[in-house]
Amino acid sequence: MEQPLVIVSTSPHVRSPRTTRGVMLDVCAALLPALAASVWHFGARAFLLALVSVGSCVAFEALSRIVMKRPQSVGDCSAIVTGLLLAFNLPPALPLWMVPIGALVAIVIVKQLFGGIGQNFANPAITARIVLLLSFPAAMTGWSAPCGVDAIASATPLKVLGEVLASRPSDFSPGDFPSLLQMLLGQRGGSLGETCAAALLLGGLYLCIRKVITPLIPLCYIGVVALCSFFYTGSPVLMLYELLGGGLLLGAVFMATDYSTSPVTRWGKVIFAVGCGLLTCLIRFFGNMPEGVSFAILLMNLLSPHIENLTAPKAFGKEKRHAKA
């Protein structure tokens, strides 16, 4: 192809240097600390799991575009993000052959069949996690202990906490739990990438500084969970366990902020995040599952288009005319 001599196009003639790929690579970079933490806690198997997950997501993305005879989109790196997030939602000991099944659900069914990037109505990684959880309940809840920590081997702190709260809250003794510092560093049972709160917060901070996300959704989500937990458990320490435990930070920072499945409007983001927080607490405290982040986000994903329509910004100058009329 010959280079055009003089380019004629309509304004604007300058564009921001940010690209879709740049945004996705920023998210990958933000996920790296948590990945490193999971390798530290769960060993090389965590890395292997992430590798298989990313690899199968990228392969499914490329394949589905070829089969659907659509322009190849694997270069936008969004499949890498989905792969990492899917891996982060899996228990470290999950049999490897189950991972591509999750990738198939995430990339082919949730994302590509609905039109590819930006068109999916639900978060691919979360949907895949839920499908795997319902298909292989035992494997998906077989938590292995972090290396070198003789903490509770098979149950996540949140599960223990739930059982304690359900029976007799006064029975709570901190000895049953990893310390708050251990919770912050991720030395506890749980999914691959959800345990190390410090790494997740670091990633979130990076995303905010790089302006990939606004802090609105994470802050509202975590804030609502904090408030509800404080009033339900009546103890600031237990509240902290609720915040650091389970998949809350991973969900609030990386999953609920997914562009495609959260509202684009400012107030829409607030309502969406508050809804996620309330649903998470309802499931955690009154449901029969220890964890509610995935289901909460999935349910709010479905409401997202309606929230967005209800919170459409008023055009500048529109209010005034209404006031006069």
């Binding site: 380019i7 990037i117 930006g118 068109q119 562009y259 684009v264 409007t265 055009a315 500048f316 100058g317």
Partner: peptide, 27 residues
Amino acid sequence: SSEARLKPESACIRCGRCVAVCPMRLQ
């Protein structure tokens, strides 16, 4: 030529930046 290079167009990722920057508060 480098300033004039056109940005290739790809699918909307619904990031909402256009809504956030619109001075007339449109979508």
